[in-house]
Simulated scan of single mutants.
Amino acid sequence: MNKITELFKIQYPIIQAGMIWNSGWRLASAVSNAGGLGIIGAGSMYPDVLREHIQKCKKATDKPFGVNVPMLYPNLEEIINIIVEEGVKIVFTSAGNPKTYTAFLKEKGITVVHVVSSSKFALKAQEAGVDAVVAEGFEAGGHNGREETTTFTLIPMVRENISIPLIAAGGIATGRGMLAAMVLGADGVQVGSRFAASEESSAHENFKKAIVDLEEGETHLTLKELAPVRLIKNKFFADVVDLYTKSPTIDDLKRLLGRARAKKGMFEGDMHEGELEIGQIAGLIHDIKPAAEIVKGMMAEFESAKKQMINLN
Score class of each variant (00 low, 15 high):
Leu226Pro: 11
Ile155Trp: 15
Ala238Tyr: 13
Thr100Ser: 09
Leu243Asp: 02
Gly145His: 11
Gly283Leu: 02
Pro74Glu: 02
Leu123Pro: 01
Val134Ile: 15
Leu284Met: 12
Asp48Trp: 12
Met266Gln: 12
Ser198Phe: 10
Asn234Trp: 06
Arg261Lys: 15
Ile40Ser: 02
Met178Asn: 02
Tyr244Leu: 12
Asn81Phe: 00
Val295Met: 07
Ile232Thr: 06
Ala292Leu: 00
Val134Pro: 04
Ile4Asp: 05
Ser32Gly: 00
Glu215Arg: 14
Asp252Lys: 07
Arg255Glu: 12
Ala132Asn: 08
Ala305Gln: 15
Pro165His: 00
Glu160Phe: 13
Lys58Thr: 05
Phe8Pro: 08
Glu303Arg: 07
Thr61Trp: 04
Leu7Gly: 02
Lys254Glu: 13
Gly41Gln: 08
Thr219Gln: 12
Thr93Ser: 15
Arg194Ile: 04
Thr93Gln: 03
Glu86Asn: 01
Ala34Lys: 03
Leu7Asn: 02
Ala169Pro: 11
Glu205Arg: 09
Arg176Gln: 14
Lys254Ala: 13
Glu225Met: 10
Phe104Asn: 03
Leu243Cys: 08
Arg261Ser: 08
Tyr101Cys: 10
Phe267Ser: 06
Met19Cys: 04
Glu293Thr: 08
Val67Cys: 05
Pro156Phe: 06
Leu223Ala: 12
Ile162Trp: 09
Gly129His: 13
Arg261Gln: 12
Leu166Val: 14
Val183Leu: 13
Leu184His: 11
Pro290Asp: 08
Ala28Glu: 01
Ser29Thr: 07
Pro98Met: 00
Gly188His: 10
Phe195Glu: 02
Ser119Tyr: 01
Gln55Cys: 08
Gly142Arg: 09
Leu226Cys: 06
Gly87Cys: 12
Leu37Asp: 08
Ala140Arg: 02
Val69Arg: 08
Ala17Thr: 01
Lys246Asn: 14
Ile281Gln: 02
Asp252Thr: 07
Lys263Asp: 11
Ala95Val: 04
Asp242His: 11
Ala169Glu: 09
Gly188Arg: 10
Phe237Glu: 05
Ala300Tyr: 03
Ala168Ser: 15
Ile39Glu: 06
Val134Gln: 01
Ile110Leu: 05
Ser119Ala: 15
Asn97Ile: 05
Ser201Cys: 03
Val133Ile: 14
Ala34Thr: 04
Glu293Phe: 08
Ala203Glu: 10
Lys89Phe: 12
Lys235Ala: 14
Val229Arg: 11
Glu6Gln: 14
Asp242Gln: 13
Ala60Trp: 04
Thr149Ser: 04
Asp187Leu: 11
Gly35Leu: 13
Thr150Met: 08
Met309Ile: 12
Val88Ile: 13
Gly96Trp: 11
Lys58Leu: 11
Pro70Asn: 00
Val158Glu: 05
